[in-house]
């Protein structure tokens, strides 16, 4: 039983990281219907930025964290401007390819700048543990969970309570109509990319104590975050986080209770099973073309 709870907590923590990356996918998808295959690589880059600020320049953890988030938000806007905006509205497949290309580029460049070694970021909660009875919970894992909850609440508030959030939802429904209603669609899209890169950075920094940062971490985790987003029904913010947690828990349970090898494929098997039964994911809306 104790093992189970322990596995559950680490599964949830890992799942939160997936969920945060998935959140980035969903944000961009909701606003522009672009599926950003480079989301994981944005996370990786965010981790490296934080490492540069904290590990190499020796800044305070929180200042370095904030700096990385700000820098990546700018970078997200830049990426949108250069790679995505010129082809906005083209078939989804083209845009997917463009972001795959962006991912390649970011991975290689990061490898060139920061090398291919595993890097680690020291955090204020790298070491401590919380003891509840005989249960031992590491702070780094709890911090991921807490941060995810906070971020989700903030994003929910942003989307539902602010004007900018409403504008984003409007332009995601129909960009041309939103444009005619006076919403600066281009700026809105820029902001969405900034937010999504910032969220990815949070994931990257939070992840650093759990896994190391290296140039391929984005690809590896991105491939897990994708099923998470799809499981949640691509386009639903709570769905992304729930999907992420599910994938995380499945993975950690399969790793603990099943034979070696299941850990990596279990999430995909579950995903395929879910898609068979519900092709639009757990929280997705089923819509059909009107004729």
């Amino acid at each position: 039983m104790l093992d189970f709870v322990q596995q559950l907590v680490s599964g949830v923590a890992l799942g939160c990281v997936y969920g945060l990356i998935a959140l980035g996918f969903v944000l961009v998808y909701k606003a522009t219907e672009v599926v950003n295959f480079a989301q994981g690589d944005l996370m990786m880059l965010g981790g490296f930025f934080a490492f540069t600020f904290i590990g190499m320049m020796g800044l305070n953890y929180w200042i370095g964290f904030a700096g990385a988030v700000a820098a990546m938000a700018l970078f997200g806007m830049l990426a949108e401007r250069v790679v995505v905006r010129p082809i906005l509205g083209y078939p989804q497949f083209s845009i997917i390819m463009a972001t795959i290309g962006l991912g390649y580029f970011l991975r290689s460049v990061a490898g060139m700048i920061w090398g291919t070694d595993d890097l680690k970021i020291e955090t204020p909660f790298s070491q401590g543990v919380l003891r509840v009875g005989s249960l031992v919970l590491a702070y780094d894992k709890l911090s991921v969970i807490a941060a995810t909850v906070i971020l989700c609440t903030l994003l929910w508030l942003f989307f539902n309570k602010t004007t900018l959030g409403t504008a984003m939802r409007a332009s995601s429904e129909n960009m041309l109509a939103a444009y005619y209603m006076g919403i600066p669609v281009k700026r809105v899209v820029s902001v969405v990319w900034a937010i999504s890169a910032a969220v990815a950075t949070c994931a990257g920094v939070l992840l650093a104590p759990i896994t190391f940062i290296h140039s391929n971490v984005g690809l590896v985790l991105g491939l897990k975050a994708f099923p998470a987003a799809v499981l949640g029904g691509f386009g639903s913010i709570p769905g992304a986080v729930v999907g992420g947690v599910l994938i995380g828990v499945i993975e950690s349970m399969a790793g603990f209770y099943l034979a070696e090898g299941w850990k990596d494929v279990a999430p995909y098997i579950v995903l395929l099973a879910v898609l068979l039964l519900k092709p639009e994911g757990l929280f997705g809306l089923h819509v059909r073309k009107k004729v």
Binding site: V83, P86, I87, S94, A98, G101, Y104, F105, T116, S215
Partner: peptide, 22 residues
């Protein structure tokens, strides 16, 4: 001879093709 230059060029080529030669 930097490691990964090939990957970067690869990435740029893909992006350029999608952008300018769909």
């Amino acid at each position: 001879s930097l490691n990964g230059l090939k990957g970067a060029i690869y990435g740029i080529i893909i992006v350029l093709f999608v952008l300018f030669e769909p």
